[in-house]
């Protein structure tokens, strides 16, 4: 069984962001980078499938500058077999259709049985790429999956809807599945597996070899929204902050009366 997992490297969302000089994206300097959280569930699901079926081969793919190799290596340490790095220094200006186009172009002749990715990225958050890959490859695609089972070449999945309701759906392979938070418990790479990952194959593909589609949209301007609330900000020693907070709650709410 051949599995492809598509992952993105994103900044830690707690970072202090700055707008880049061209105002088209955030400044990528001085940020801590990690694997997109949703994609961790996709990697884990791929490894779980491999553990279940035994005979499986997992390729993990990421698009971006050289530093995304660090995130690919984490996925290799979690249990993927081979890394594919689509080297693209302009990745942050690519729109979802271009990202999906690159993945589909890479995957087209490789006969993957299962393609997994996160349901969205934490930074751009379009939620489009996985479904677009399915459409471009003419495969069934199921998004926002919170439960996954594979038996006799058939997937039975639960999609998360609103209000805690889930839809149970089924489809055959090959298929594309996008993973929602909570699908499984992504493992931490162990030290021996981190060492082993260093020896795994990591192929670099040039962006020109896979980027065959034009952008259909672009960011005109990135900016910080105006702060609306204007809520009071308390800072200082814990005892002092606690006293001020209790005073405010006594004045403004009835809960301490």
């Amino acid at each position: 069984m051949k599995i492809l997992v598509c992952i993105k490297q994103v900044p830690d969302m707690e970072s202090k962001f700055k707008v880049a000089a061209d105002s088209r994206w955030y400044d990528t300097a001085d940020l801590a980078w990690r694997m997109n959280e949703y994609d961790e569930f996709a990697v884990e699901q791929a490894v779980l499938v491999k553990e279940q079926v035994g005979d499986a081969d997992i390729t993990v793919l990421s698009i971006g500058p050289d530093k995304v190799k660090e995130t690919i290596k984490k996925a290799l340490a979690m249990g993927c077999d081979r890394g594919v790095h689509i080297a693209d220094d302009e990745v942050s200006s690519r729109e979802p259709f271009q990202i999906a186009g690159m993945i589909a172009e890479y995957a087209r002749d490789k006969n993957f049985d299962l393609i997994l990715t996160g349901m969205q990225s934490q930074d751009r958050g379009s939620g489009q790429v996985g479904i677009l890959v399915a459409e471009l490859l003419d495969l069934p695609g199921v998004s926002t999956v919170v439960a996954f089972s594979l038996a006799d070449g058939r997937l039975e999945l639960r999609r998360e809807l609103e209000g805690g309701v889930k839809a149970r759906v089924a489809t055959g392979l090959p298929a594309v599945v996008t993973c929602q938070l909570g699908l499984n418990n992504p493992r931490y790479p162990t030290l021996p597996n981190i060492m082993k990952a260093k020896k795994k194959e990591l192929i670099t593909v040039g962006v020109a070899d896979v980027l065959k589609v034009e952008a259909r949209q672009q960011t005109a301007k990135l900016y910080f929204p105006e702060k609306k609330g204007g809520g009071l900000i308390l800072e200082g020693e814990p005892a002092e902050v606690a006293d001020r907070l209790i005073t405010i709650l006594k004045e403004k709410t009835a809960v301490l009366a």
Binding site: M13, Q122, G125, Q217, Q218, T219, A220, L222, Y223
Partner: peptide, 14 residues
């Protein structure tokens, strides 16, 4: 963008 910390305007080319 980034969990609503930032926003962006979009130019559509289609």
């Amino acid at each position: 963008v980034c969990n609503a910390k930032l926003r962006r305007t979009v130019e559509i080319k289609t």
